[in-house]
């Protein structure tokens, strides 16, 4: 018996169709009522700030001088973005970071997840060890990495490079404009790897076993099985990780602010840091809003392209 049974009538003679629609309306109202708190929260804390930021980007305004001082300046802030050396460097650094960090992180996470799924003893302990950096405070992690990548030959990493690999001129890492971003990327990969390993591992363990049995019967090697069975079946999870890592990579700020503050020069300046700089160091809030919108558009584009690719390549 279901709501779709419309030929029956109730004892009081009210047609079931009418009663059903009343029930449905009540359920709809209840549903809307449950949604209202989160809708209000989303509107106040997400939609309104985004719309305000969008609007502010087209204005020149000092918030200390009231709304009457707000001046509409069209696309002026956005035009300035293109000639701003800080923004040019920030966009380049953000793209470099994302295009390096995301593939390396996901590839290593996938490999580790596959290894942890099959070939190791003390799997639980190892999983925990891989996940540990992700739950560590970024401030602590940044401090440890600053020590590890100490720029002189006495630094732990540079000692290894010098004495084991006979590197004569080891990198100056965070104090060199050539190496600072690479150091940040390495640290970022190390810190976030565990999160993606856990997601991919959970998905690998949920894959159907009979497919692997069929592969074994057909004589597929472990490498063939990994690339032709595991990876395709994991595609939705991999895309989830890629999308998440991409969005997070564009929002990078904490570790850079702690370690290099965007320097040396602009070598590690990123867009979020530029937003912070213009808003809180120069009090140019409307220009900072324009930079924030640029970041929003870049993340939006990347997310959509990734979704489009996902639809094309997954089952």
């Amino acid at each position: 018996m279901g709501l779709g049974n419309q030929s029956h009538s109730s004892k009081k003679g009210i047609p079931m169709k009418k009663k059903t629609s009343i029930l449905m309306r009540q359920e709809q109202r209840a549903g809307i009522a449950f949604l209202i708190p989160s809708l209000i929260g989303t509107t106040i804390f997400i939609i309104v700030p985004i719309v305000m930021s969008l609007m502010l980007g087209f204005t020149q305004w000092n918030p200390m001088k009231g709304f009457s001082e707000m001046k509409f300046i069209g696309l002026q802030n956005y035009k300035t973005l293109f000639s701003d050396i800080r923004i040019q460097n920030a966009v380049r650094n953000n793209l470099t970071y994302t295009l390096t960090y995301v593939p390396f992180t996901i590839a290593i996470a996938l490999l580790l997840a596959a290894i942890l799924n099959r070939f190791v003893y003390m799997r639980t302990t190892l999983r925990m060890m891989v996940f540990l950096p992700y739950v560590s405070s970024l401030v602590s992690v940044a401090t440890v990495w600053m020590v590890l990548l100490y720029p002189s030959a006495n630094g732990p990493i540079n000692s290894i490079l010098t004495h084991v690999f006979h590197v004569t001129n080891p990198p100056k890492w965070f104090t060199s404009s050539d190496w600072a971003l690479r150091g940040i990327i390495m640290m970022g990969i190390w810190h976030d790897l565990g999160y993606h390993v856990v997601i991919l591992l959970a998905n690998i363990t949920a894959l159907p076993k009979d497919v692997y049995e069929a592969c074994a019967i057909d004589g597929a090697s472990p490498i063939q099985t990994f690339f032709r069975v595991t990876v395709p079946m994991l595609a939705p999870a991999i895309f989830f990780c890629v999308t998440l890592a991409t969005i997070n990579s564009f929002k990078i700020f904490d570790q850079i602010n702690i370690i290099t503050e965007g320097g040396p020069g602009f070598s590690t300046t990123v867009l979020v840091q530029a937003v912070y700089y213009y808003a809180f160091k120069e009090f140019r809030f409307t220009y900072a809003s324009a930079v924030a919108m640029l970041l929003f558009v870049i993340i939006f584009l990347f997310s959509n392209v990734l979704q489009w690719i996902e639809k094309k390549v997954t089952f």
Binding site: K172, T175, S176, S177, D178, G263, P264, G265, F266
Partner: peptide, 11 residues
């Protein structure tokens, strides 16, 4: 500050 950092770093 931004520019002299590169000079002091020898870059």
């Amino acid at each position: 500050g931004e520019e002299t950092t590169l000079f002091f770093n020898g870059e």
